[in-house]
Design a binder for these strands. Structure first.
Lengths: 217, 217
DNA sequence: TGACAATTCAAACGTGTGTTTGAAATATCT
DNA sequence: AGATATTTCAAACACACGTTTGAATTGTCA
């Protein structure tokens, strides 16, 4: 009657397939639009499997968030592959690149980024925890970089606004892809296109932040 | 059996109330999440009223888009209250202000902006027409301003990317309000807060664009 | 007033959703 | 092998949604 606790190993076959399938479907369609029927079909499982293994759709979603998060930090460690004493400019560029790839990579690695991106515009009950545990730390990390770039004359408010300016540019291409694709069909999203996008956002933002820093004096 | 054509006047009472109520509900919840039951309740009309007066939910939505668009251009004419020979910097600031107010104003005036903002992340069948008739012209208008700021050395691609950087910052606060409010509870959205936001986005973007223009040489 | 059209209304329909059920199948362990 | 627990399965449930229906009401005009 209750889900098994054996130790781990093979017994969790269906359970694992459900999480994988759900990750894909949730990342594609969002929590609300995703259907447990679609998930179970993709997992080659019965419709009742979700409720049997996870209780309900929302608990499965939380499990998917947990699971994809693990995968994501394995692939994209928070301290990106750069030295601790790297210049703030380099660290900003790395932050942006990492942010974009977390969302635009294909396959399981990008699921977590896509889910987080979704949560921002169509929140579920999980958002509060996500903000506290994942989003706020990242925001502070970004804020630190930006304060360094702005110099000592910057207010907390200015750093916060600049941080949102940076993040907004990254999220835009994911959130508004339907419009971007119609307006500019030439804009593609291959790995190298993302690289170019990161290049633009970084130089755009760097130029702006440095300039604002100068004005503060 | 067919909707009336009298001339206009009073007969369209329920019809008009439905459009008003629908504007509010659609702007709040989006096309899909809005229910005709909620709309009819707010319009003090029967559930069948939507189908009787408009055919179905989607036709009502199109009517709302048409109606709110009229209201919007009355309040925020595309040529904002500035002289034709105003500097590109001033025109960029005006573009941003206008964009933000169209979304963040309260009451009927902002419904169209909110609906457009929704269409970008959760498109309906209306998006193709909206892009062709409303969004693309605005994008070209913005692109012209930015090309002027970038100077003659700028590529079309660079102008396009800068345009998206500007727009993304404006949309962010609407799309991601759930996250922004949790991360920064001190960020409010009164008229003067929007003014401050416009000020930041404009100076951030201006600084960036001017700097990129210099580098082109 | 009377006949006809337009509109409103409560009720129901059909569909898609997440979830539950109880039996059947499978695995596990003594 | 037999007993027990775990997992699967088809079917159905309960609910919300957009929509339809047909009768009742209201308005219009000769």
């Amino acid at each position: 009657m209750v889900a098994p606790l054996k130790t781990d190993s093979i017994q969790a076959e269906t359970r694992h397939q459900l999480i994988e399938a759900a990750g894909e479907v949730f990342a594609e369609a969002g929590f609300r639009a995703a259907t447990v029927r679609a998930i179970c079909e993709r997992a080659h499982a019965n419709i009742a499997a979700v409720n049997y293994h996870f209780g309900d759709k929302e608990k499965l979603y939380l499990e998917v968030l947990r699971h994809t998060q693990e995968q994501a930090i394995k692939k994209y460690p928070t301290n990106l592959g750069l030295k601790k004493d790297a210049s703030p400019a380099l660290r900003l560029k790395a932050f942006i690149r990492s942010f974009l790839f977390r969302i635009f990579d294909e396959g399981p690695i990008a699921w977590h980024g896509k889910l987080m991106s979704r949560e921002m515009i169509e929140p579920t009950a999980a958002l509060d925890a996500l903000v506290a545990e994942k989003i706020r730390p990242q925001a502070q990390q970004l804020s630190a970089i930006i304060r360094e770039l702005l110099g000592s004359g910057a207010s907390a408010r200015q750093a916060r606004l600049c941080g949102m300016s940076v993040v907004s540019q990254c999220l835009f291409y994911h959130h508004c892809r339907p419009v971007v694709s119609r307006l500019f069909p030439e804009q593609k999203f291959s790995r190298s296109d993302i690289e170019d996008l990161a290049e633009h956002i970084a130089s755009f933002s760097l130029a702006a932040i440095k300039q604002l820093g100068k004005k503060n004096r």
